[in-house]
Design a protein around this nucleic acid. Structure first.
Lengths: 130, 130
DNA sequence: ATCAGTGCAAACCATTTGCAAATTA
DNA sequence: TAATTTGCAAATGGTTTGCACTGAT
């Protein structure tokens, strides 16, 4: 009981399909435009609602790009990992957690990724709030 | 030539003063509200313009909070470092770059910070785009 | 037939901008 | 006085929402 039915619809298939096809972050507007071009008109609201839907189910990761705009990417809910984003083509490499040096090295050797910037943020409780 | 004069004004002093007083991220709206409460009315546009001004000069760091809203914090342009943000009080600890293990340990011992989440992002060129 | 999903237009809300008035140098 | 900054109100732009309609089960 209480389990809400989920319908399989064309808009959802189109959006999921598009995301599945390319391992990078897309903005809602970008997805909307792409579907338009391919004769698969879907309203922007539906794009947003579908992305939210996928996010809730853990199938999609959300991230704010440099301009603060929300972007989404298919991201299999495997182990905890981080992202290496190519600033040229947008391709995303999954990077697992180890030490920073290992990461930098692994980015180069394993992913062939030439690192030029990184950003980290930690959240928790400070001394005073523990 | 080309060097633009910078005026010292009350709004700027108020805003910089408020940021200097607390080492945490404030949204523009929050700053605006605080100044209002303290009988130092400043328009929201001026708050935004001043924050942008401070950011350009490197005196302030910008970051999007969980809701995607822009927040700002005084941040002396010293060496490259990262942030540990207390999810209870918002206090920010500066953390310098070393290995992850050192970081986790240093967060605990040096900063007394109980870590429960972290986020990293790498940017560069992927194999195909180098 | 029923319940979930869609489209559209309007609402929202953070942020930006044009311009005339006020302030600083 | 000349240049910069401010306030206000209007514009912007991404995202959300209400609601009647369409589509899936």
């Amino acid at each position: 009981m209480g389990t809400r039915a989920v319908y399989v619809t064309k808009p959802r298939e189109q959006i999921a399909g598009l995301l599945r096809a390319e391992p990078r972050f897309f903005s809602a507007a970008e997805i909307h435009r792409r579907l338009d071009e391919h004769e698969h008109k879907v309203s922007l609201s539906t794009v947003y609602r579908t992305l939210e839907h996928l996010r809730e189910r853990g199938e999609v990761t959300e991230r704010a790009d440099d301009a603060g705009e929300a972007t989404y990417k298919m991201c299999a809910p495997t182990h905890h990992h981080h992202h290496a984003i190519c600033r040229a083509c947008g391709r995303v490499e999954d990077v697992d957690c180890s030490t920073m040096e290992q990461l930098a090295e692994s980015l180069r050797s394993v992913h062939g990724f030439e690192l030029d910037e990184h950003k980290m943020e930690f959240t928790g409780r400070c001394r005073a709030c523990r």
